[in-house]
Computed example of a mutant assay.
Amino acid sequence: MRAQLPRRVLLSLVLRLLFLKPVVTGSCSGDDQELLKQLQRQTDFMQDTSRLLDPYMHAQGLDVPGLKEHCQEHPGVFPRENALHGLSRRGFLQTLNAKLGHVLHRLTILQQDLPKVQLTVKRYIYGIRNNIYCLAQLLPGSSETAEPTQAGTEDSPPPPPASDTFQRKLQGCQFLRGYHRFMHSVGQVFHKWRESPSRSRRHSPHRALRKGAYRMQPSMRGKRLMPRGQLPQ
């Protein structure tokens, strides 16, 4: 039994990772509800501070009283939840895609200050962006993913890295704090989308084709059959 216990624990961890593992192959599902479900799971996973912020603070010695109180989100780096809810679906996906690209760039800069956990985080971000691309294809009038844009006038780039070592650590901490809060806000938006009727289903190209074909079928009501060979007057 002692030999089997680690195997069961390992199997449980593997299954959990497979359950949460984002799509990274580039293939897309045509089910918008399934994509939303995956995106909400991924954002729920990424809003957990144990994924990035907590390991960073521990590695940088910031998780002590008197220092961790200074690790607060820098205003304007990430959009607030009310601004995200005010965006159209396309605008929201473009903004999320742009912000995740910025996070990937920042993680590359912080890779010397972060443990190996950031590699897992990057894979999740790539998976989220792939699901964003797939969901964008189901929006009405979508032919290809538009270039990402910023959200709202409050959205501004982070301050340049400080030359002072402590300030640089603090900026990294503030950025990661804002990222986790941002992913929580993103999850709230996806949750609302799942509760509301899917516009992408109502505007499905296949449904439109079937509807158009039905309209094109001539109605036989009130039409008089003519003898063979007789032309209409």
Rank of each mutant, 00 (worst) to 15 (best):
Q4D: 14
Q4F: 12
R7Q: 15
R8F: 10
L10R: 15
L10S: 14
L13D: 09
L18G: 05
L20H: 11
K21V: 07
K21G: 07
C28D: 03
C28F: 03
D31R: 04
D32W: 02
L35Q: 02
L36S: 07
L36P: 04
Q38R: 15
Q38D: 14
M46W: 04
Q47T: 06
S50R: 08
S50Y: 07
L52G: 06
L52R: 05
L53V: 01
D54S: 14
P55W: 04
A59P: 07
Q60N: 08
V64D: 05
L67K: 15
K68Q: 15
Q72E: 12
E73R: 09
L87D: 03
R89Q: 10
L96D: 02
L96H: 03
L104C: 04
H105F: 12
H105Y: 13
L107A: 00
T108K: 14
T108W: 09
Q112M: 12
Q112Y: 12
D113M: 09
L114D: 02
L114P: 02
V117Y: 11
Q118Y: 15
T120H: 14
I125H: 01
I125F: 03
R129M: 07
N131Y: 00
N131M: 01
N131Q: 06
Y133N: 12
C134T: 00
L135W: 00
A136M: 10
S142T: 05
E144S: 15
T145N: 13
E147S: 14
A151D: 00
P157F: 02
P158S: 14
P160V: 03
P161M: 13
A162R: 10
T165Y: 09
K169V: 09
Q171Y: 06
C173G: 00
Q174K: 10
Q174A: 08
R177C: 04
R181Q: 13
R181L: 10
S185C: 02
V186E: 01
V189Y: 04
V189W: 01
K192N: 04
K192F: 09
K192V: 06
W193V: 01
R199S: 10
R202Q: 13
R202V: 12
P205G: 03
A208H: 08
P218D: 03
P218Y: 03
R221V: 12
L225G: 08
P227A: 11
P232K: 15
Q233F: 10
